[in-house]
Computed example of a mutant assay.
Amino acid sequence: MNAEAAMAIAVPAAVLGAAGFGLATAAQQRATKEVEVSRTLSPKLLVELLRRPMWLLGLLATVVALILQLVALAFGPIAVVQPLLVTGVTFAAGFSALLARRRPDPLILLGALCCAAGLSAFLLLARPSSAGADDHIDLASGLPLAIALAALVVGCLVYAATVEHPSRVLALALATGVLYGVTAGLMKVVTGQLRTGLDEPFQHLALYVVCIIGPMGFLLSQNTFQQGRLVSPAVAVITSVDPVIGVLIGVSWLGESLVTSPAMLAGECFAALVVVAGIAFIVARGSHLLHRLETEDTVRITEHRARSAFG
């Protein structure tokens, strides 16, 4: 299959996967609010959530989205597939508003569209290619990145466990995004190995690491959704970190390439800044909406107490 035909399969599959992840995020974030807050990475949370139909809907959407992501990774470079997941911010905001029976916040959607525009420009300029890519990870060359990512995840978890501040949710989201990006990189390796034979992945380390890191990332995402009142800021962090890690793994471990001429590199950096600006705007807007919700809750509680006192 030529590159154009492969991309014609990979890109729609990645976008549909992003939509699936957006629906899963909205449904799971809503369901996690209905159960008791659990410790980070505690399996007890999943046991409680299994009784919630809304969470089961999110689980089904996650499975479908993962299948679509695997299809996309089988046909396209990870440097294309993972950045397309940034569109999940838009889908998550829309589905979250739909499930809550309210209109999506227009400024959140504007930030999401900004992310999508920057992403489209980046992909057009960078033109990621998997020509010459290797399906086997060179552990020696990837060890510094692996150590740095592990340290980042541990640091985020320690911060979230020891600091009582709203930013702890973003720390959990950052750790989730890193685990998702690493999982995607390893899944790319596994899909490549499957071309050799159905038993080939079982002879390599990547599959077994996915079976550990993947569930950890999923469980951590549920902790993240449970801790935050608004889904958009956390999703913005997760879906922005995920592709960054995916591109790093694709270029440094899997031999994928990007166009890096001076002019194109300048354009890619500008497009990346547009994506970062969109994400920062979503986080800022989410913080503003959260503050407004907290103020409304305070006023509502005060009025209720006043009515009770004079009732």
Rank of each mutant, 00 (worst) to 15 (best):
34 E>V: 05
31 A>H: 08
50 L>Y: 07
35 V>A: 07
42 S>E: 00
31 A>W: 01
38 S>H: 14
38 S>W: 15
61 A>M: 03
41 L>H: 08
31 A>F: 00
39 R>D: 00
50 L>P: 11
70 L>T: 10
57 L>S: 09
67 I>A: 15
76 G>Y: 03
52 R>C: 10
62 T>D: 08
35 V>T: 12
45 L>C: 03
31 A>I: 02
50 L>H: 12
73 L>Y: 04
56 L>M: 09
67 I>L: 14
61 A>R: 02
41 L>E: 04
45 L>N: 05
60 L>Q: 04
61 A>N: 04
66 L>W: 15
34 E>G: 11
46 L>V: 06
31 A>Y: 02
41 L>K: 05
69 Q>P: 07
32 T>S: 05
41 L>G: 05
38 S>P: 11
48 E>I: 11
40 T>V: 03
43 P>D: 01
61 A>G: 01
36 E>L: 04
56 L>C: 09
51 R>E: 08
72 A>D: 07
35 V>S: 13
66 L>T: 14
65 A>D: 10
58 G>A: 02
39 R>G: 11
68 L>T: 06
73 L>W: 03
64 V>G: 00
36 E>G: 06
40 T>L: 03
73 L>R: 08
46 L>A: 07
30 R>S: 15
62 T>Y: 10
33 K>P: 00
50 L>W: 07
63 V>F: 14
75 F>Y: 11
67 I>C: 14
43 P>M: 00
47 V>H: 10
70 L>P: 05
48 E>F: 12
45 L>H: 11
69 Q>K: 08
69 Q>S: 14
48 E>K: 15
64 V>N: 02
44 K>A: 12
55 W>I: 04
49 L>S: 09
41 L>I: 01
70 L>Y: 10
68 L>K: 05
38 S>Q: 09
72 A>K: 03
32 T>H: 03
49 L>K: 10
65 A>V: 00
76 G>A: 05
58 G>F: 00
52 R>N: 13
32 T>C: 01
39 R>W: 12
64 V>P: 00
41 L>N: 06
58 G>P: 00
75 F>S: 12
41 L>F: 07
44 K>W: 15
58 G>E: 08
42 S>G: 01
41 L>R: 03
69 Q>G: 14
37 V>E: 13
40 T>P: 01
31 A>V: 04
72 A>E: 05
49 L>H: 06
33 K>F: 01
69 Q>D: 15
55 W>M: 06
39 R>C: 08
44 K>E: 11
50 L>R: 14
50 L>G: 15
